[in-house]
């Protein structure tokens, strides 16, 4: 068993608990144990806090990192926004002594110190990593292949970009997420402008909802044209934007899609035999039942 401190963030535990439950259960079946990271907070939201004062963003993210350092465990998480805060601040503070000293001055007030002794991973990259899990283990864990399901993969932004500072390779047309989706028996579909943003980030969802939804709408048009039965993503905030966003788009623009939106962990949970009730799919804004009838 590979053990990790499970950093939850906000939207997964507090809006889509199925993401949290499925992450814990699906990972255990492929040899990954997610341990609670007690006292963790918001990552904090990179759009909001990064825009207000980057120094606060560094210090707040560092506090979460120190909690995992104290556990002596690497962090695994399931949200691109959290990845931006937690992975990136860890990376910056490990490589910038001046900033680390500044942050540690603040952390000293609460008897904490950032040491830079752990690493941060997105659960999806652990699934893909042959040394930790790998595609074959994912394939072997599947009991109900989602055959016949056409899935549009949304990578999101803050996991892979900016490319130069990350380690995921190509950000114009990556295919590793599609490989994961194929491994659970579903059929990934290619669609126009696949790497476009969902529209929620940078505080734009809260600042100008119509502008934000217009970006989402463009993605939904492209996904529908490719014949997607469902959307899968790696980020609960993107999930919220596509899922609740479709309801808002219907109200504001009159466009109706009804494409269910499932986090990859939820999709993997279904393929591993978890029931829709185990995933709280009824909390989703878009009804998942027609999709479930088709695949299960």
């Amino acid at each position: 068993m590979h053990e990790y401190a499970f950093f939850l963030g906000c939207i997964a535990p507090n809006r889509y608990p199925g993401c949290e439950a499925s992450a814990i259960k699906t990972s255990e079946k492929v040899g990954i144990k997610l341990l609670p990271l007690k006292g963790a907070s918001c990552c904090p939201a990179p759009g909001a806090f990064g825009s207000i004062d980057l120094n606060v963003w560094y210090a707040m993210a560092a506090r979460n990192l120190v909690l995992a350092e104290e556990m002596k465990k690497d962090i695994a998480l399931i949200c691109n926004g959290c990845y931006k805060s937690i992975w990136e601040v860890n990376h910056i503070l490990k490589h910038n002594d001046e900033l680390r000293d500044q942050v540690n001055e603040v952390l000293a007030e609460i008897d904490m110190q950032f040491k830079g002794s752990i690493d941060v991973f997105h659960l999806a990259e652990l699934y893909y990593n042959e040394e930790i899990c790998g595609l074959q283990k994912i394939r072997d864990s599947v009991t109900t292949p989602l055959s016949g399901a056409k899935i549009a993969c949304h990578y999101g932004c803050h996991l892979m970009k900016p490319q130069k500072e990350r380690h995921f390779g190509d950000t114009e047309n990556p295919m590793w997420f599609e490989e994961l989706v194929s491994a659970i028996g579903a059929e990934p579909v290619q669609y126009r402008n696949k790497m476009q943003c969902c529209g929620a980030g940078g505080g734009v969802r809260g600042y100008d909802i119509v502008h934000s939804l217009d970006i989402t709408n463009e993605k939904l048009i492209n996904m529908r044209e490719a014949g997607a039965d469902a959307i899968t993503e790696l980020c609960p905030f993107c999930q919220l934007q596509f899922d609740r966003g479709q309801i808002e788009i219907k109200e504001k623009f009159g466009d109706v899609y009804n494409i269910p939106v499932l986090h990859f962990n939820e999709l993997l949970g279904l393929a591993q035999g978890m029931s829709p009730q185990d995933l709280a799919l009824d909390l989703h804004g878009i009804n998942c039942t027609p999709f479930l009838k088709k695949v299960l």
């Binding site: 535990p13 507090n14 608990p17 990271l37 709280a280």
Partner: peptide
């Protein structure tokens, strides 16, 4: 501690899933 805090609907859903009503974050601690 959370930008998007927990609520009662979600607490009920979490309990049904076998999770604690509040996550092991600042909400529980």
């Amino acid at each position: 501690g959370h930008g998007v805090p927990n609520n009662d609907v979600n607490r009920a859903a979490r309990t049904k899933l076998g999770l604690d009503a509040d996550p092991p974050t600042t909400h529980s601690y």
